[in-house]
Amino acid sequence: MKLSIGSVTKPGSTRINKTGSWRTFKPIIDIEACIGCGTCSMLCPEGSAYKDNVSGKYAIDYDYCKGCGICAQECPVKAIEMVMEEK
């Protein structure tokens, strides 16, 4: 629905803040092992794990991933590894 008054800012505009720079550890998905269940995507606080529509497997948007490691912890087939970020 459209509201015409009272709005102070644009929807979704936090996207200009690339929180990927917060990361210490980086999740790497083993595409061979990934079963495409979507647990990582469901539980990511940033919504940065997304489904690659071609392969049906999951990938990480490193622009926003803060490296919390919930995806690696919860992946039912342990297809995600956290590795030290190199800058």
Binding site: T14, N17, T19, S41, P45, G47, K51, K66, G69, I70
Partner: peptide, 15 residues
């Protein structure tokens, strides 16, 4: 990318 109604870039702690 999937539709996200709660956009990334928010200032929540990692986790």
């Amino acid at each position: 990318m999937q539709e996200e109604l709660f956009a990334p870039g928010h200032r929540g702690c990692a986790g």
